[in-house]
């Protein structure tokens, strides 16, 4: 049930509200100040409300925990994974496996399929120091897919965002050359032969 406000005379309560909102004209305000002098109970209510609001405001703004940005990014990623249809994931997985087999075959036999190559690699092809270096900034998703020519192709899921990771990977003294920044935040990396010691 709504009653039209303009048909009712304004109550002291309503004037109090307008006073708190700063909506009284100078004349109305002067009148209200006089009313407060005559009505100590109304004055006490005004004071209580002002003090309550002032205490609320004194609490001030709060900052979330230090790693909030990272927490949100991680949550967004996991949401995306959870929402992506299983069918699409399956197709991606099948394509990835097919690609892996093809790359392994090329690595074994060369493009013409003739010369067996000793450069076949497995997860072990990544040295401990390579792994530690990558793990310092990334969670290894699947690694050492294949060794082609002079490089290992490594797929990692960075804990930094893609660009930050990319600049880390390609900055001065970096060992990695990203070949693709994937939209889901992963980066395909090429690890140079020099860092993959023992090959």
């Amino acid at each position: 049930m709504t009653e039209p406000e303009d048909e009712l005379p304004e109550t002291p309560e309503e004037r109090l509200e307008r006073y708190l909102d700063g909506d009284l004209s100078p004349e109305e305000r002067a009148g209200f100040d006089q009313e407060l002098n005559r009505n100590p109970s109304l004055a006490a209510r005004l004071e209580a409300r002002q003090r309550a609001v002032s205490l609320l405001r004194r609490a001030g703004p709060e900052r979330p925990p230090k790693h909030f940005v990272f927490m949100v990014a991680e949550r967004a990623r996991s949401e995306r994974r959870r929402r992506s249809p299983v069918g699409a994931e399956l197709v991606v997985a099948i394509i990835s496996v097919a690609l892996l087999i093809a790359l392994s075959w090329v690595a074994f036999h060369g493009i013409d399929g003739s010369a067996p190559s000793p450069s076949v690699t497995s997860e072990k092809a990544l040295t401990e120091s390579d792994r530690r270096l990558i793990e310092s900034v990334a969670t290894i998703d699947s690694i050492a897919v294949a060794k082609t020519g002079t490089a290992l192709i490594v797929r990692v899921r960075p804990t930094l965002d893609a660009r930050e990771f990319e600049s880390w990977a390609t900055g001065p003294g970096a060992h990695f050359r990203p070949i693709t920044a994937l939209p889901d935040g992963r980066v395909d990396l090429t690890v140079s032969e020099a860092t993959s010691t023992g090959h």
Binding site: P61, E62, R63, P64, F68, V69, V72, A73, A76, D161, A162, R163, E164, P183, G185
Partner: peptide
């Protein structure tokens, strides 16, 4: 465009307001 960096900027900029 799905720019992850822009998302981080947005969170940094609004985190305190939203959290409070």
């Amino acid at each position: 465009r799905g720019d992850g960096r822009a998302f981080n900027e947005l969170v940094r900029q609004h985190q305190s307001t939203v959290y409070t």
